[in-house]
Design a protein around this nucleic acid. Structure first.
Lengths: 345, 345
DNA sequence: TTGTATGCGTTATCAA
DNA sequence: TTGATAACGCATACAA
């Protein structure tokens, strides 16, 4: 059924007693067409509000002027902000954006990518899911020259452009900040070490401790394999950090979700303790609602989205295959609030 | 360029020395084809990992097995949860979801809708933007029989299926709750009255006041035209509610964003006051981070998404045009926390 | 039971 | 300068 009253080139041709090819050429302003015919066609098209059918174009050109985005969750401020950045650039370049979520499932990830590719997206913006292990399909795609840009959660196993936040430096500064505040036993709640971001942040944390001659204790690092999707997992982590053997006086959290949920858990668990230092990676404005407001590390999500999209579109539109891949690292920013000490009610 | 090594029906036909139509029919399990040929084709297709090209199908069938979603912002918990609901149903029915954002701009809204339609989405899930005024295009589309389901922010000017939260009852109960807590002067921060949700909530608020013999004062209702997108607007609203002439002792906020931002503003502004009652519509878990946690009205976002999608798919797949439209109203739930009183630090 | 031809909307190639 | 035709991948009416 056609609900779209969109007229086609054929309709124009018929109405004007021309051939479809003439109309097509006139519309695209080709030099072979007489100014007269051109004007005729253009005006008629304008008047009838002609729009080329994108589907037909996709079929013909084997491209769609659309880019696919694969993220774990859009209900995550980092990603929704990144998507806004992606859209802003894509939009300005005449590209359409198709967003898909993996919900951290590798099957979902695979299905989404395949679907996007078969839908002829011209390129892919990819932030890997926690689970991802088998990258062979992606690798193949990339080797065939399919434009892919990784952002945020990246892997070195596929050599593409990469755009990330400076997770290392963010974590380093965050940890130093807690140390400067006088906290001596800093716990770290993070997600699976599968993820690049997890490893980078952990390294920043370790190096900061080392710089200040504080020993690294693996027992103080809690990996939540579901990245904060499951509350109980986080609460358990928080609780274990407060157990006698390894009682921390401060906590540093790694992700948007993890930060949110840890703060919630702290409300319940930390009551028993006088003061808990806190800092976390987050792009929500949650933390300022705390009493007193806590410090956070904010990531340049919007800019990451923009940057990744620029690179992708450049790849798509360049004639020759790209061989040199960029690694853009955008600075995270430390936001220091009144106090990083949480005073339980 | 073809990066997808997807084989086509033609390839199969060639390899098996059959015609494309035979292959096509075999693949679709038509009865005319001999079991033998069917098996042959099926197996080969399976082995070569054949996938029909969705673009070609769209062009042919004038449908895409995709549904378009138009919301104002995905960086809004209500919508991201609703989208999850939408995806869950769409996915199970073999539909693909294309999400677009209007950022509350009516131009953006128009462009998105047209783009989706020209991309042959089979139906539209629509949550109107604040600004929307000219509905003629949408009306036309609907009159031509294009499947549209409105959700959350709806208008009566277009007669479609509608799925909403029970905003009226939510607001009514919220207001009653504040009254029960002893607050006597309750301010209401909401968005433009263009929006159905705004009007419903306002009515709930008014009726609750009336029931308890409290007079309604229009001066205590602040409309933020940008729905909380602009902080200053909200802060101004909060401040004016605390001015001597109309000093409120409690605030009731209308939207996800508005609630978040008002809470932030309260942190700054309300410091001067001893106690402020608070309740707001929100789907974030922000409110529990407050000290003490505040009460909220939570909307069944996920279920709204699911329900709207069910209706839409039913419309898409039904042969005869729908004439009777449903108005589904799903209950909001009041979440009472320790206290709805905010104690400034 | 299978094959041929046509069309979905567009553009490119070749011919006029 | 313009037109006829084929092609993108698929499904179907019609022929065989």
């Amino acid at each position: 059924m056609k609900f779209d009253d969109a007229i086609t080139i054929k309709d124009i041709a018929k109405a004007l007693n021309l051939s479809t090819s003439t109309v097509s050429r006139a519309l695209r302003g080709r030099y072979e067409i007489s100014a007269e015919t051109k004007k005729l066609v253009m005006e008629y098209a304008e008047r009838m509000n002609y729009r080329p059918n994108p589907i037909a174009l996709s079929l013909k050109e084997q491209r769609s002027k659309a880019i696919g985005v694969v993220v774990s969750e859009i209900a995550n401020n980092f990603f929704s902000q990144a998507i806004n950045g992606i859209e802003s650039i894509a939009y300005n370049n005449g590209y359409h954006v198709i967003i898909t979520q993996t919900h951290e499932s590798k099957e979902r990830e695979m299905v989404n990518i395949q679907h996007l590719v078969s839908r002829s997206v011209d390129g892919l913006l990819l932030s890997l899911s926690c689970e991802t292990t088998d990258l062979s399909y992606l690798k193949q795609l990339h080797e065939k020259g399919f434009p892919i840009v990784q952002f945020d959660r990246v892997t070195n196993e596929i050599d593409t452009h990469r755009v990330t936040a400076d997770n290392y430096m963010g974590a380093f500064q965050a940890t130093e900040h807690l140390i400067a505040q006088g906290f001596r036993k800093i716990g770290h709640i993070t997600s699976t070490s599968n993820l690049s971001i997890t490893r980078e942040r952990l390294q920043g944390y370790r190096d900061a401790l080392e710089k200040h001659n504080m020993s690294y204790d693996a027992g103080l690092v809690k990996h939540c394999t579901h990245g904060g999707m499951i509350y109980d997992e986080v609460e358990e982590a928080v609780e274990s950090l407060f157990q006698s053997r390894s009682k921390v006086d401060a906590i540093f959290t790694a992700g948007d979700r993890l930060t949110t949920v840890t703060l919630s858990a702290l409300k319940n668990v930390a009551k028993k303790y006088k003061q808990v230092g806190f800092i976390g990676f987050t792009n929500t404005n949650l933390a300022e609602l705390f009493t007193p407001p806590v410090s956070v590390i904010r990531q340049p999500a919007f800019e990451i989205g923009q940057s990744a999209t620029e690179l992708l579109i450049r790849m798509i539109e360049s004639k020759r295959p790209v061989t040199e891949f960029e690694n853009r690292v955008l600075p995270s920013s430390l936001i220091i609030r009144e106090s990083s000490a949480l005073i339980p009610s």
